[in-house]
Amino acid sequence: MSVLSTPAEVPQGAPVTRRTRSSKAQRRAVALFVAPFGILFLAFYAIPIVYAVVQSLLTVEREGTFGAPRQVFGGFVQYQQVFQNTAFWESVGRVLLFGVVQVPIMLGLALLFALLLDSPLLKGKKFFRLAFFAPYAVPGVIAAIMWGFLYSPSLSPFGAVTSNVDLLGADLVLWAIANIVTWVYVGYNMLIIYSSLLAIPTEIYEAARLDGASNLQIAWRIKIPLVIPAIILTAVFSIIGTLQLLAEPQTLRSFSSAINSTFTPNLAVYTTASVPNYNLAAAFSVVLALATFILSFVFLKSTQRKVTQ
């Protein structure tokens, strides 16, 4: 490679030429470093997004009932359909309700566990850290299969509960899914918050302790404000994850008849694509991606302002 053959010995009196030569080598290196990711990002991120937008602007036209289908430009026809599709908006409302309840519970628990791990009150911290994190190694599909069995009236080891309370019925199945998601992700979020607690210099606490602050006061007044950025990060990822729910409800469908084919927005995308109505499915995808992007962006901006205040 020519980059490697840049002469090591450069005459002392010529720093200018050396700088230009090395900066040329650096430019080439940057191009080599960025290109692989850049090309793949373009091919499998940027182009699909553009392609989805294009597809969502097309509509299928037939000449007569039995004519060959033909894609023509339809403007916002698909988006009109999206906005009139009550099933889709019901699914959006469902995951928003899910997120409003599940995300604060999950992050609240994660924060509590992280603070306890960081406090002097616990023994066996390493064990708790691993035990709480272990569910993160269980993929959503597998977690849903496990909990599906645990929820089912006939197979569950908690039959006394599950034969009396229909966890897989229409009223509770959304919260049954919330429990699965919480089970998988609490430990992961706990670790993110815990690592940022570890990064706080201890001197800060020493000073507070000398002033007579209790553990609770230290946690509330010092630790929590300092880990807010970590909590915001976990919240953004949780919001994105909630809007994208698919694996858990789709898997639970074989345990519960209460989950229909448009239970979450992504299920609606999948169902519509299987019809197949690709143009409408593409429009769903675009609306969902935009909504996710805007929601997480607005959340990031509004919390950042609060933090700096």
Partner: peptide
Amino acid sequence: NIVLSGVLVPATALALPLFLI
């Protein structure tokens, strides 16, 4: 900045267009 916006675009939103491509 493009990479950062990529972080906020959920991978599942890409599944369908990827399939079409």
